[in-house]
Nucleic acid binder design. Sequence first.
DNA 1: CTGAGATTTCAGCAATGACTGAAATTACAG
DNA 2: CTGTAATTTCAGTCATTGCTGAAATCTCAG
Lengths: 194, 194
Amino acid sequence: MTLPPIVQAFVLHFGEMGGRWGVNRTVGQIYALLFLSDRPLNAEEITEALGVSRSNVSMGIKELEAWRLVRKRHLPGDRREYLEAPDDIWQILRTLAEERRKREIDPTLSLLRDILMETPASAEERHAQAKMRQMHDLIELLTGWADDVQRLDNDSLAQLLALGAGVSKLLEVKSKIAVFASGKRRNSTQEDAS
Amino acid sequence: MTLPPIVQAFVLHFGEMGGRWGVNRTVGQIYALLFLSDRPLNAEEITEALGVSRSNVSMGIKELEAWRLVRKRHLPGDRREYLEAPDDIWQILRTLAEERRKREIDPTLSLLRDILMETPASAEERHAQAKMRQMHDLIELLTGWADDVQRLDNDSLAQLLALGAGVSKLLEVKSKIAVFASGKRRNSTQEDAS
DNA sequence: CTGAGATTTCAGCAATGACTGAAATTACAG
DNA sequence: CTGTAATTTCAGTCATTGCTGAAATCTCAG
Protein backbone atom coordinates (compact mmCIF):
# COMPACT_ATOMS: atom_id res chain seq x y z
CA MET A 1 0.00 0.00 0.00
CA THR A 2 1.81 3.11 -1.20
CA LEU A 3 -0.26 6.00 -0.05
CA PRO A 4 0.54 9.34 1.55
CA PRO A 5 0.88 8.76 5.31
CA ILE A 6 -2.18 10.73 6.31
CA VAL A 7 -4.30 8.97 3.71
CA GLN A 8 -2.99 5.63 4.82
CA ALA A 9 -3.74 6.37 8.45
CA PHE A 10 -7.30 7.32 7.60
CA VAL A 11 -7.85 4.32 5.36
CA LEU A 12 -6.53 1.89 7.95
CA HIS A 13 -8.65 3.48 10.63
CA PHE A 14 -11.80 3.15 8.53
CA GLY A 15 -10.89 -0.45 7.93
CA GLU A 16 -10.69 -1.12 11.64
CA MET A 17 -13.83 0.82 12.46
CA GLY A 18 -15.70 -0.93 9.66
CA GLY A 19 -16.51 -3.78 11.99
CA ARG A 20 -18.28 -1.49 14.45
CA TRP A 21 -20.15 0.20 11.63
CA GLY A 22 -21.51 -3.00 10.21
CA VAL A 23 -19.22 -3.46 7.22
CA ASN A 24 -16.03 -5.44 6.86
CA ARG A 25 -12.51 -4.09 6.79
CA THR A 26 -12.12 -3.96 3.04
CA VAL A 27 -15.39 -2.11 2.55
CA GLY A 28 -14.36 0.48 5.09
CA GLN A 29 -11.00 0.93 3.42
CA ILE A 30 -12.42 1.25 -0.07
CA TYR A 31 -14.85 3.89 1.05
CA ALA A 32 -12.19 5.84 2.92
CA LEU A 33 -9.96 5.78 -0.12
CA LEU A 34 -12.69 7.01 -2.45
CA PHE A 35 -13.84 9.64 0.00
CA LEU A 36 -10.39 11.18 0.16
CA SER A 37 -9.53 10.83 -3.50
CA ASP A 38 -9.62 13.90 -5.67
CA ARG A 39 -10.63 11.82 -8.68
CA PRO A 40 -12.59 8.64 -9.43
CA LEU A 41 -10.57 5.44 -9.13
CA ASN A 42 -10.91 2.20 -11.01
CA ALA A 43 -10.99 -1.19 -9.34
CA GLU A 44 -7.42 -1.96 -10.29
CA GLU A 45 -6.15 1.19 -8.60
CA ILE A 46 -8.10 0.36 -5.46
CA THR A 47 -6.76 -3.19 -5.46
CA GLU A 48 -3.24 -1.92 -5.69
CA ALA A 49 -3.66 0.86 -3.13
CA LEU A 50 -5.12 -1.48 -0.53
CA GLY A 51 -3.15 -4.61 -1.28
CA VAL A 52 -6.18 -6.89 -1.36
CA SER A 53 -7.48 -9.18 -4.06
CA ARG A 54 -9.31 -7.92 -7.08
CA SER A 55 -12.34 -10.03 -6.24
CA ASN A 56 -12.46 -8.67 -2.74
CA VAL A 57 -12.60 -5.15 -4.17
CA SER A 58 -15.38 -6.21 -6.49
CA MET A 59 -17.46 -7.46 -3.59
CA GLY A 60 -16.66 -4.40 -1.52
CA ILE A 61 -17.81 -2.10 -4.29
CA LYS A 62 -21.01 -4.07 -4.60
CA GLU A 63 -21.73 -3.55 -0.94
CA LEU A 64 -20.93 0.14 -1.06
CA GLU A 65 -23.35 0.45 -3.95
CA ALA A 66 -26.00 -1.29 -1.88
CA TRP A 67 -25.36 1.38 0.74
CA ARG A 68 -25.58 4.02 -2.01
CA LEU A 69 -22.29 5.43 -0.80
CA VAL A 70 -20.45 5.17 -4.12
CA ARG A 71 -21.28 5.73 -7.75
CA LYS A 72 -19.91 4.13 -10.88
CA ARG A 73 -18.77 6.43 -13.64
CA HIS A 74 -17.30 5.96 -17.06
CA LEU A 75 -14.40 7.95 -18.40
CA PRO A 76 -14.37 8.58 -22.14
CA GLY A 77 -12.05 6.24 -24.02
CA ASP A 78 -11.62 3.90 -21.07
CA ARG A 79 -13.54 0.67 -20.76
CA ARG A 80 -12.98 0.34 -17.07
CA GLU A 81 -15.46 1.48 -14.47
CA TYR A 82 -14.42 4.31 -12.22
CA LEU A 83 -15.76 4.79 -8.74
CA GLU A 84 -16.34 7.89 -6.73
CA ALA A 85 -17.87 8.84 -3.43
CA PRO A 86 -20.42 11.65 -3.65
CA ASP A 87 -18.86 14.72 -2.14
CA ASP A 88 -21.78 16.52 -0.56
CA ILE A 89 -21.13 15.52 3.00
CA TRP A 90 -24.66 16.41 4.03
CA GLN A 91 -26.01 14.05 1.45
CA ILE A 92 -23.70 11.34 2.74
CA LEU A 93 -25.15 11.92 6.17
CA ARG A 94 -28.69 11.53 4.88
CA THR A 95 -27.82 8.39 2.98
CA LEU A 96 -26.16 6.84 6.01
CA ALA A 97 -29.14 7.69 8.19
CA GLU A 98 -31.56 6.18 5.70
CA GLU A 99 -29.61 3.01 5.14
CA ARG A 100 -28.88 2.39 8.77
CA ARG A 101 -32.48 2.90 9.61
CA LYS A 102 -33.53 0.49 6.91
CA ARG A 103 -31.18 -2.17 8.24
CA GLU A 104 -31.19 -1.58 11.96
CA ILE A 105 -34.58 -0.19 12.85
CA ASP A 106 -37.30 -0.92 10.32
CA PRO A 107 -37.25 -4.70 10.80
CA THR A 108 -37.79 -4.23 14.52
CA LEU A 109 -40.56 -1.72 14.00
CA SER A 110 -42.24 -4.18 11.69
CA LEU A 111 -41.99 -6.99 14.21
CA LEU A 112 -43.33 -4.77 16.98
CA ARG A 113 -46.34 -3.85 14.89
CA ASP A 114 -47.10 -7.51 14.33
CA ILE A 115 -46.76 -8.49 17.95
CA LEU A 116 -48.86 -5.58 19.14
CA MET A 117 -51.78 -6.97 17.17
CA GLU A 118 -51.75 -10.14 19.25
CA THR A 119 -53.98 -10.51 22.28
CA PRO A 120 -51.99 -11.14 25.45
CA ALA A 121 -52.87 -14.34 27.26
CA SER A 122 -51.46 -13.61 30.69
CA ALA A 123 -50.36 -10.81 33.00
CA GLU A 124 -46.78 -11.47 31.97
CA GLU A 125 -47.64 -11.11 28.31
CA ARG A 126 -49.65 -8.01 29.00
CA HIS A 127 -46.67 -6.41 30.66
CA ALA A 128 -44.34 -7.49 27.86
CA GLN A 129 -46.69 -6.05 25.31
CA ALA A 130 -46.89 -2.78 27.18
CA LYS A 131 -43.10 -2.51 27.07
CA MET A 132 -43.13 -3.26 23.38
CA ARG A 133 -45.74 -0.60 22.90
CA GLN A 134 -43.43 1.90 24.59
CA MET A 135 -40.58 0.88 22.36
CA HIS A 136 -42.76 0.99 19.30
CA ASP A 137 -44.06 4.45 20.06
CA LEU A 138 -40.61 5.81 20.77
CA ILE A 139 -39.22 4.39 17.54
CA GLU A 140 -42.10 5.84 15.58
CA LEU A 141 -41.48 9.22 17.14
CA LEU A 142 -37.79 9.02 16.29
CA THR A 143 -38.23 7.82 12.74
CA GLY A 144 -40.98 10.34 12.13
CA TRP A 145 -38.65 13.08 13.30
CA ALA A 146 -35.88 11.66 11.15
CA ASP A 147 -38.19 11.63 8.13
CA ASP A 148 -38.92 15.28 8.65
CA VAL A 149 -35.36 16.35 9.23
CA GLN A 150 -34.24 14.23 6.29
CA ARG A 151 -36.09 16.59 4.02
CA LEU A 152 -34.43 19.76 5.25
CA ASP A 153 -31.93 21.38 2.94
CA ASN A 154 -28.29 21.54 3.98
CA ASP A 155 -28.47 25.05 5.40
CA SER A 156 -31.56 24.45 7.48
CA LEU A 157 -30.06 21.28 8.82
CA ALA A 158 -26.82 23.05 9.71
CA GLN A 159 -28.79 25.77 11.44
CA LEU A 160 -30.80 23.23 13.36
CA LEU A 161 -27.69 21.43 14.52
CA ALA A 162 -25.94 24.64 15.48
CA LEU A 163 -28.92 25.59 17.57
CA GLY A 164 -28.52 22.49 19.71
CA ALA A 165 -30.49 22.53 22.92
CA GLY A 166 -31.33 26.10 22.12
CA VAL A 167 -34.39 24.54 20.60
CA SER A 168 -35.58 23.98 24.11
CA LYS A 169 -35.55 27.70 24.78
CA LEU A 170 -37.24 28.25 21.49
CA LEU A 171 -39.94 25.81 22.50
CA GLU A 172 -40.44 27.66 25.75
CA VAL A 173 -41.21 30.90 23.98
CA LYS A 174 -43.20 29.18 21.32
CA SER A 175 -46.41 29.63 23.23
CA LYS A 176 -45.62 33.28 23.74
CA ILE A 177 -45.14 33.73 20.04
CA ALA A 178 -48.50 32.13 19.52
CA VAL A 179 -50.00 34.77 21.77
CA PHE A 180 -48.45 37.60 19.82
CA ALA A 181 -49.21 35.98 16.51
CA SER A 182 -52.84 35.54 17.28
CA GLY A 183 -53.14 39.11 18.46
CA LYS A 184 -51.19 40.56 15.59
CA ARG A 185 -52.07 40.21 11.94
CA ARG A 186 -48.50 40.70 10.87
CA ASN A 187 -48.06 38.10 8.12
CA SER A 188 -50.41 35.35 7.27
CA THR A 189 -47.54 32.91 6.74
CA GLN A 190 -46.21 30.17 9.01
CA GLU A 191 -46.14 31.51 12.60
CA ASP A 192 -47.34 28.55 14.65
CA ALA A 193 -45.99 25.15 13.73
CA SER A 194 -48.13 22.98 15.98
CA MET B 1 -36.84 -21.98 25.76
CA THR B 2 -40.29 -21.93 27.31
CA LEU B 3 -41.53 -18.40 26.96
CA PRO B 4 -44.82 -16.88 25.94
CA PRO B 5 -44.93 -16.76 22.13
CA ILE B 6 -44.80 -12.99 21.83
CA VAL B 7 -41.89 -12.78 24.24
CA GLN B 8 -40.09 -15.52 22.40
CA ALA B 9 -40.59 -13.81 19.05
CA PHE B 10 -39.17 -10.56 20.41
CA VAL B 11 -36.23 -12.26 22.09
CA LEU B 12 -35.32 -14.21 18.97
CA HIS B 13 -35.58 -11.08 16.87
CA PHE B 14 -33.28 -9.14 19.17
CA GLY B 15 -30.86 -12.01 18.97
CA GLU B 16 -30.81 -11.84 15.20
CA MET B 17 -30.60 -8.06 15.10
CA GLY B 18 -27.84 -8.09 17.68
CA GLY B 19 -25.30 -8.60 14.94
CA ARG B 20 -26.34 -5.42 13.15
CA TRP B 21 -26.32 -3.50 16.40
CA GLY B 22 -22.81 -4.47 17.33
CA VAL B 23 -23.49 -7.15 19.92
CA ASN B 24 -23.75 -10.91 19.59
CA ARG B 25 -26.89 -12.96 19.53
CA THR B 26 -26.86 -13.93 23.20
CA VAL B 27 -26.36 -10.36 24.35
CA GLY B 28 -29.31 -9.23 22.26
CA GLN B 29 -31.47 -12.00 23.65
CA ILE B 30 -30.56 -11.35 27.24
CA TYR B 31 -31.36 -7.70 26.90
CA ALA B 32 -34.67 -8.38 25.18
CA LEU B 33 -35.63 -10.78 27.93
CA LEU B 34 -34.79 -8.33 30.69
CA PHE B 35 -36.46 -5.47 28.92
CA LEU B 36 -39.76 -7.34 28.71
CA SER B 37 -39.60 -8.92 32.13
CA ASP B 38 -41.80 -7.52 34.85
CA ARG B 39 -39.25 -8.45 37.51
CA PRO B 40 -35.48 -8.83 37.81
CA LEU B 41 -34.12 -12.19 36.72
CA ASN B 42 -31.12 -14.12 37.98
CA ALA B 43 -28.53 -15.64 35.71
CA GLU B 44 -29.90 -19.12 36.14
CA GLU B 45 -33.33 -18.05 34.97
CA ILE B 46 -31.84 -16.36 31.94
CA THR B 47 -29.78 -19.43 31.13
CA GLU B 48 -32.85 -21.57 31.26
CA ALA B 49 -35.08 -19.21 29.32
CA LEU B 50 -32.60 -18.83 26.48
CA GLY B 51 -31.16 -22.32 26.43
CA VAL B 52 -27.55 -21.19 26.38
CA SER B 53 -24.69 -21.96 28.70
CA ARG B 54 -24.32 -20.34 32.07
CA SER B 55 -20.92 -18.96 31.15
CA ASN B 56 -22.30 -17.42 28.01
CA VAL B 57 -24.90 -15.60 30.07
CA SER B 58 -22.21 -14.39 32.40
CA MET B 59 -20.25 -12.89 29.53
CA GLY B 60 -23.37 -11.41 28.01
CA ILE B 61 -24.27 -9.72 31.27
CA LYS B 62 -20.80 -8.31 31.51
CA GLU B 63 -21.14 -6.76 28.11
CA LEU B 64 -24.57 -5.32 28.85
CA GLU B 65 -23.11 -3.76 31.97
CA ALA B 66 -20.35 -2.23 29.89
CA TRP B 67 -23.12 -0.72 27.78
CA ARG B 68 -24.85 0.41 30.97
CA LEU B 69 -28.04 -1.21 29.73
CA VAL B 70 -28.58 -3.46 32.72
CA ARG B 71 -28.19 -3.17 36.48
CA LYS B 72 -27.42 -5.76 39.09
CA ARG B 73 -29.67 -5.91 42.10
CA HIS B 74 -29.85 -7.99 45.22
CA LEU B 75 -33.00 -9.45 46.62
CA PRO B 76 -33.16 -9.82 50.40
CA GLY B 77 -32.44 -13.33 51.57
CA ASP B 78 -31.07 -14.45 48.20
CA ARG B 79 -27.38 -14.59 47.47
CA ARG B 80 -27.82 -14.59 43.73
CA GLU B 81 -27.53 -11.48 41.64
CA TYR B 82 -30.65 -10.32 39.89
CA LEU B 83 -30.58 -8.31 36.72
CA GLU B 84 -32.93 -5.73 35.42
CA ALA B 85 -33.12 -3.34 32.51
CA PRO B 86 -33.85 0.26 33.52
CA ASP B 87 -37.38 1.03 32.47
CA ASP B 88 -37.24 4.69 31.56
CA ILE B 89 -37.18 4.28 27.82
CA TRP B 90 -35.90 7.82 27.34
CA GLN B 91 -32.97 7.08 29.53
CA ILE B 92 -32.28 3.94 27.54
CA LEU B 93 -32.22 6.08 24.44
CA ARG B 94 -29.69 8.46 25.98
CA THR B 95 -27.51 5.61 27.15
CA LEU B 96 -27.54 3.98 23.73
CA ALA B 97 -26.68 7.25 22.06
CA GLU B 98 -23.80 7.89 24.44
CA GLU B 99 -22.34 4.42 24.18
CA ARG B 100 -22.63 4.16 20.44
CA ARG B 101 -21.01 7.53 20.09
CA LYS B 102 -18.18 6.50 22.38
CA ARG B 103 -17.56 3.35 20.35
CA GLU B 104 -18.40 4.38 16.82
CA ILE B 105 -17.60 8.06 16.54
CA ASP B 106 -15.17 9.34 19.13
CA PRO B 107 -12.21 7.26 17.93
CA THR B 108 -12.63 8.67 14.44
CA LEU B 109 -12.97 12.21 15.69
CA SER B 110 -9.78 11.75 17.63
CA LEU B 111 -7.91 10.43 14.61
CA LEU B 112 -9.18 13.28 12.46
CA ARG B 113 -7.95 15.82 14.96
CA ASP B 114 -4.51 14.25 14.89
CA ILE B 115 -4.29 14.11 11.13
CA LEU B 116 -5.50 17.67 10.73
CA MET B 117 -2.47 18.86 12.68
CA GLU B 118 -0.15 17.45 10.04
CA THR B 119 1.15 19.59 7.22
CA PRO B 120 0.16 18.24 3.81
CA ALA B 121 3.09 17.48 1.52
CA SER B 122 1.33 17.42 -1.83
CA ALA B 123 -1.77 18.54 -3.65
CA GLU B 124 -3.25 15.09 -3.13
CA GLU B 125 -2.68 15.30 0.60
CA ARG B 126 -4.05 18.80 0.71
CA HIS B 127 -7.25 17.62 -0.89
CA ALA B 128 -7.47 14.62 1.41
CA GLN B 129 -6.99 16.84 4.40
CA ALA B 130 -9.69 19.21 3.22
CA LYS B 131 -12.12 16.30 3.01
CA MET B 132 -11.14 15.19 6.47
CA ARG B 133 -11.71 18.70 7.71
CA GLN B 134 -15.22 18.58 6.30
CA MET B 135 -15.88 15.29 8.01
CA HIS B 136 -14.36 16.52 11.24
CA ASP B 137 -16.46 19.66 11.29
CA LEU B 138 -19.64 17.78 10.53
CA ILE B 139 -19.00 15.25 13.26
CA GLU B 140 -18.27 18.02 15.75
CA LEU B 141 -21.50 19.72 14.82
CA LEU B 142 -23.42 16.49 15.25
CA THR B 143 -21.85 15.49 18.53
CA GLY B 144 -22.20 18.99 19.88
CA TRP B 145 -25.87 18.91 19.03
CA ALA B 146 -26.16 15.46 20.61
CA ASP B 147 -24.48 16.74 23.77
CA ASP B 148 -27.02 19.50 24.03
CA VAL B 149 -30.03 17.34 23.31
CA GLN B 150 -28.71 14.69 25.67
CA ARG B 151 -29.30 17.08 28.53
CA LEU B 152 -32.94 17.78 27.78
CA ASP B 153 -35.49 16.24 30.11
CA ASN B 154 -37.87 13.63 28.74
CA ASP B 155 -40.70 16.02 28.07
CA SER B 156 -38.61 18.56 26.21
CA LEU B 157 -37.10 15.81 24.14
CA ALA B 158 -40.51 14.41 23.31
CA GLN B 159 -41.68 17.87 22.36
CA LEU B 160 -38.66 18.40 20.17
CA LEU B 161 -39.18 15.10 18.39
CA ALA B 162 -42.86 15.70 17.91
CA LEU B 163 -42.07 19.02 16.36
CA GLY B 164 -40.08 17.35 13.62
CA ALA B 165 -39.26 19.58 10.71
CA GLY B 166 -41.50 22.14 12.31
CA VAL B 167 -38.26 23.33 13.80
CA SER B 168 -37.48 24.70 10.42
CA LYS B 169 -40.49 26.98 10.61
CA LEU B 170 -39.52 27.92 14.11
CA LEU B 171 -36.09 28.84 12.85
CA GLU B 172 -37.62 31.08 10.24
CA VAL B 173 -39.35 33.14 12.88
CA LYS B 174 -36.36 33.02 15.15
CA SER B 175 -34.91 36.11 13.57
CA LYS B 176 -38.12 37.94 14.24
CA ILE B 177 -37.87 36.96 17.87
CA ALA B 178 -34.32 38.20 17.83
CA VAL B 179 -35.66 41.61 16.97
CA PHE B 180 -37.86 41.59 20.03
CA ALA B 181 -35.26 40.05 22.27
CA SER B 182 -32.33 41.98 20.88
CA GLY B 183 -31.43 43.02 24.41
CA LYS B 184 -29.54 39.86 25.11
CA ARG B 185 -28.10 36.98 23.08
CA ARG B 186 -28.91 33.51 24.31
CA ASN B 187 -26.21 31.44 22.75
CA SER B 188 -23.56 31.47 20.08
CA THR B 189 -25.65 30.39 17.12
CA GLN B 190 -25.32 32.51 14.08
CA GLU B 191 -28.23 34.91 13.96
CA ASP B 192 -28.79 35.22 10.29
CA ALA B 193 -31.35 37.88 9.52
CA SER B 194 -32.00 36.86 5.95
C1' DC C 1 -12.33 -19.75 59.22
C1' DT C 2 -14.84 -23.19 56.38
C1' DG C 3 -17.49 -24.79 52.77
C1' DA C 4 -21.37 -24.59 49.62
C1' DG C 5 -23.44 -21.78 46.37
C1' DA C 6 -22.73 -18.29 42.91
C1' DT C 7 -20.04 -16.15 39.45
C1' DT C 8 -16.18 -15.49 36.35
C1' DT C 9 -12.39 -16.93 33.56
C1' DC C 10 -10.41 -19.40 29.94
C1' DA C 11 -8.75 -23.04 26.72
C1' DG C 12 -10.58 -25.45 23.12
C1' DC C 13 -14.24 -26.39 19.76
C1' DA C 14 -17.96 -24.62 16.63
C1' DA C 15 -19.95 -21.32 13.73
C1' DT C 16 -19.68 -17.43 11.11
C1' DG C 17 -17.66 -14.18 8.22
C1' DA C 18 -13.88 -12.51 5.18
C1' DC C 19 -10.60 -13.20 1.44
C1' DT C 20 -8.48 -15.46 -2.45
C1' DG C 21 -7.67 -17.49 -7.02
C1' DA C 22 -9.75 -19.63 -10.73
C1' DA C 23 -13.48 -19.93 -13.71
C1' DA C 24 -17.56 -17.85 -15.69
C1' DT C 25 -19.75 -13.96 -17.42
C1' DT C 26 -20.15 -9.47 -19.40
C1' DA C 27 -18.88 -5.55 -22.41
C1' DC C 28 -17.14 -3.82 -26.28
C1' DA C 29 -13.42 -2.69 -30.03
C1' DG C 30 -12.24 -4.28 -34.34
C1' DC D 1 -19.12 -12.31 -34.77
C1' DT D 2 -14.56 -12.88 -32.45
C1' DG D 3 -11.19 -12.00 -29.13
C1' DT D 4 -9.64 -9.52 -25.31
C1' DA D 5 -10.06 -6.74 -21.36
C1' DA D 6 -12.91 -5.99 -17.37
C1' DT D 7 -15.85 -7.56 -13.92
C1' DT D 8 -18.40 -10.87 -11.16
C1' DT D 9 -19.22 -15.23 -9.07
C1' DC D 10 -18.07 -18.94 -6.24
C1' DA D 11 -15.91 -22.90 -3.90
C1' DG D 12 -12.39 -23.49 -0.84
C1' DT D 13 -9.39 -21.68 2.75
C1' DC D 14 -8.19 -18.63 6.30
C1' DA D 15 -9.36 -15.59 10.21
C1' DT D 16 -12.38 -13.99 13.59
C1' DT D 17 -15.82 -14.35 16.76
C1' DG D 18 -19.04 -16.91 19.68
C1' DC D 19 -20.07 -20.64 22.79
C1' DT D 20 -19.20 -24.35 26.02
C1' DG D 21 -17.67 -27.06 30.05
C1' DA D 22 -14.40 -27.32 33.47
C1' DA D 23 -11.67 -25.10 36.66
C1' DA D 24 -10.68 -21.03 39.34
C1' DT D 25 -12.32 -17.36 42.02
C1' DC D 26 -15.43 -14.97 44.80
C1' DT D 27 -18.96 -14.44 48.54
C1' DC D 28 -21.15 -15.02 52.52
C1' DA D 29 -23.89 -17.94 56.13
C1' DG D 30 -22.80 -20.54 59.87
